[in-house]
Design a protein around this nucleic acid. Sequence first.
DNA 1: TCAAAAGTGTTTGTACTACACCCATGC
DNA 2: GCATGGGTGTAGTACAAACACTTTTGA
Lengths: 228, 228
Amino acid sequence: MKTFNSYKNPAIAVDLVVFGYHDKVLSALLLNRNEEPFKDGWTLPGSFLQMEETFRAACSRILQTKMGLSDLFLEQLYSFDDPARDPRGRVISVAYYALINPHAFNVVAGKMANDVKWFPVNKLPRLGFDHKVIFKTAVERLKAKILYYPVGFELLNDTFTMTELHELYECVLGIDIDRRNFRRKILDAGYIINTGTKRAGLKNRHPELYTFNKKLGENQFQLHIQIE
Amino acid sequence: MKTFNSYKNPAIAVDLVVFGYHDKVLSALLLNRNEEPFKDGWTLPGSFLQMEETFRAACSRILQTKMGLSDLFLEQLYSFDDPARDPRGRVISVAYYALINPHAFNVVAGKMANDVKWFPVNKLPRLGFDHKVIFKTAVERLKAKILYYPVGFELLNDTFTMTELHELYECVLGIDIDRRNFRRKILDAGYIINTGTKRAGLKNRHPELYTFNKKLGENQFQLHIQIE
DNA sequence: TCAAAAGTGTTTGTACTACACCCATGC
DNA sequence: GCATGGGTGTAGTACAAACACTTTTGA
């Protein structure tokens, strides 16, 4: 069998859109670059793919070394191929997105390296490379995904109130959803389970706490919400 | 700015799943390999990505040189990264799928190079590399896509009968769909337009001919069909 | 006039929408 | 007891599912 050489190929980068939900705002983690190109500018965290590395392994390496994160929800987003996307030469970017509960990982403001920072998705700075395009693709994917996959499982605490879940959906989708209809749909779908406990110490009525139904696989429910 | 060398990178292949609909059967184009590995076996058509080539350009090159096809519907599917997927070394595969009306391109049986052949998607031979996985991913994507995008536009002739469109949907989705409900949904969605002409020369009643409504963009309609 | 396929309509049930009211809690 | 948010219920409606009849054509 003829073998081929592995020279003169485009480089492959793996870039990550890390979503976190915190204080009723959906945010993404960005990295402040300390070298050219785009020195001192913001970009998505990423790295070149090693010769024998899988995409997921590269994602884990990036998350671990740059942010100290591990075991996140990861999904491949798209591969970007614009020949001009990197001024240093030909680089293919395979983009993934990750979901994280910032509280569970102690990566709220101040606890990370100071070149990594959360930005609300609606207040992003200018991004280097073609990362704006990658980012927009990730947001669209998340909006679609949340309608048929319990994304909240990754973004919220183990137990949460109906209002918290409701706010998450309104935030991600950017629309108002009727509180009572949302409740019924979510419960009818078997999407979450009432733990029987309540959150205490609040000024008003103590809300019931729920957990995600882990028996429910992908595509097991469908949230019919009119978008636009 | 520091530049990087482009040596010692994984190779990048672009692989294609070409779907065609013919004689009420959904088929895919496969290539009979004339070199190792998998010599004399069947694989998806594909090629290595050139240094300055976009994915779509590579797709066009593959379709043109191996099958004489051009200007097809193309969509990126997924990127595959199993380090063992190619016995010759590390190769990333960026998969696309294409849709084609075999009649419009004269690529029905016998008119193509004899190392290229249509296979019904339910009667595929053993495939080399990880192409079985790529293929299954493509079929799933097509099934999802047909519910919110007028895929038939690419697979059928310019004008077609309601029955032909109906059969296409039943074939792709692999389920029975009520003829009358299907008709109403499709028409209500503004998905197709009645041309006012009829197909003559048939034994039975002459069916009306339709065209796709080209003004209708993506996500403009949603076919609510219960899939298992 | 008969068989086969194409066109049309009706009923039923489900589930989404848009609402209003009561309940629990801390101050 | 009152303000605030949390829980529950209901009427109207829209649309999908299930189903039957009529029309057109060639033989």
